[in-house]
Write a protein that binds this DNA or RNA. Structure first.
Lengths: 224, 224
DNA sequence: CGATTATTGATAGTAATACTATTATATTTG
DNA sequence: CAAATATAATAGTATTACTATCAATAATCG
């Protein structure tokens, strides 16, 4: 299988990690470590040890660990968009397209062989556990000016467009979409850690339950 | 007006800050500072300087700054529940009760004279900007065992109950409520920092827009 | 192929953060 | 008033999040 790569915003990194061995090691191992340790406990020093490199070398790729997190999660949203395109590309019916989008969002994330050095399963757990940290920061406006949230926005825009195809007069499309994009991950988080806040369970059927919840909320909200 | 106080979970603090002058100074000034600096830039050292006390003294009240944040946001949810009780207490009709809940959530937060040393306007901005940091941490399960999320859960439970009064067979009540609790704050955040993700504007009418969005999502979702 | 250039590693250092410990001084309470 | 408690003052530590310098190695280019 051909190895694909996404063109991510240049301000996310100092040197493109997809182009070098060290860069790929940083991506691969940081996904594993942030998943395991959590973002707060993760440091460039620990990462350097694990990939047999140095802190200084990692700093040549990423300004700081927060930008690395934003990079990884941006990568995730590009990947989601790519999967949405595959899943909905051939569909004509707007409602069917919308259902396809929701299915991509709610689906269990499995390793995608198209992207060798990214473990999508672990990355999705990072998104579930850390997503909000990408924008809940005083630097959000600067980040936004640099276009660092382009991946997320692009997915949001795409699904918003589909919703407006289903019902052109629905007035809250963007808000509904950003709500479910965040909620689809948050509900999985709650199901694991704060189960009284959700109706999603912890078994294998959780992804089906999540899908049904999202389908209910979206289709009922937009019906005129 | 009588000064009220909420009985917050004991594990949130080492010494109850509501009972002493220093404690009240900590609460009052930390709200102002976290609002101004953001949670990451806020430190106990800076806080100590502003209230003419010492770092060590603050550590006698709170284990660390994260628990202080959890304390403040827990206080916020207790306050919301108190306002929901006032607003919905006299209502009989379940749909009207639900609307009253949503109104409390979507309303602009103004200073509540019942609680002298808490600036609810600033505290609400903190909730909008930092809410997810309270639970998006590796320590979430320990925190939860200690009951530190009791305020949030209690509000969630209360509104869930009202939803089930409106439609006893709606299967996603808890998920819908936790989704809108988070979303009601997130949409305000987006309207300020990432406006393409929301239909909410930045003017005075934003709270009305937020309410309408929430009413739409909730009532349409639960209708059978 | 040899010279230049870019990349990485090794090492060191700094300011700030998130605490902990100790002791002295107030302040409250019984 | 004595005893207990709360606070202030001060000091100290380990870790974090970087920055700087220079040597070694690898890639590339004329």
């Amino acid at each position: 299988m051909a190895t694909l790569a996404f063109k991510l915003n240049e301000h996310l990194y100092l040197r493109d990690p997809q182009h070098t061995q060290l860069g790929q090691n940083i991506i691969q191992k940081s996904v594993e470590m942030i998943d395991r340790l959590g973002f707060e406990q993760f440091t460039f020093k620990k990462l350097a040890e694990e990939i047999n490199s140095t802190e200084a070398s990692i700093y040549r790729y990423f300004e700081n660990k927060h930008k690395l997190l934003v990079y990884l999660i941006s990568w995730y949203w590009h990947w989601i968009e790519y999967r949405i395109d595959i899943a909905s590309g051939s569909l004509q019916n707007p409602s069917e397209k919308l259902r396809a989008c929701l299915r991509v969002l709610a689906d269990e994330k499995k390793f995608d062989a198209g992207f060798e050095f990214v473990n999508e399963e672990a990355l999705h757990r990072i998104v579930v556990a850390e997503l909000d940290k990408t924008y809940q920061t005083k630097g959000v406006d600067d980040y936004n000016k640099e276009g660092l949230f382009g991946g997320f926005k692009s997915v949001c825009r795409k699904i918003t467009t589909v919703i407006l195809e289903v019902n052109p007069s629905y007035p809250y499309a963007a808000s509904l979409v950003s709500t479910i994009l965040v909620s689809s991950n948050q509900q999985l988080f709650f199901s694991e850690h704060l189960p009284s806040l959700t109706t999603i369970g912890t078994g294998q059927e959780r992804y089906t339950q999540l899908y049904k919840f999202m389908e209910n909320i979206v289709f009922k909200s937009i019906q005129s």
